[in-house]
């Protein structure tokens, strides 16, 4: 049960959140212009980092805001050194 720092509500139990995977994956500016391969990249391919991972969480049972967190995927340690702001994908 991780303690996840919601930038709006403070640290809360993991069960209040929904996981969103890798952060900063942008929707293509013009999807019709990208190749099938690149479109597949956008749809299905996400980094699967072992180590420090920038990822998205949604405070589903709280403020419903999405935000990013830096977490070590080997230890679940969450780094509080950056501001957990609302994100772009």
């Amino acid at each position: 049960m991780m303690l996840i720092p919601c930038p709006w509500c403070g640290p809360r139990n993991e069960t209040e959140f929904h996981y969103g995977g890798q952060a900063d994956v942008s929707y293509p500016a013009d999807p019709q212009a990208v190749s099938d391969v690149d479109w597949a990249r956008f749809l299905f391919f996400r980094a699967n980092t072992k180590g420090i991972f920038t990822e998205r969480w949604n405070h589903q049972a709280g403020c419903r805001r999405w935000f990013t967190v830096r977490r070590d995927t080997t230890t679940n340690e969450i780094f509080h050194d950056d501001s957990h702001e609302a994100v772009t994908r």
């Binding site: 993991e14 995927t73 230890t75």
Partner: peptide, 13 residues
């Protein structure tokens, strides 16, 4: 468990 992890451990809930 919902999140990515290589830790070979999950959450109690």
């Amino acid at each position: 468990d919902s999140y990515n992890s290589y830790g070979q451990r999950g959450s109690f809930h």
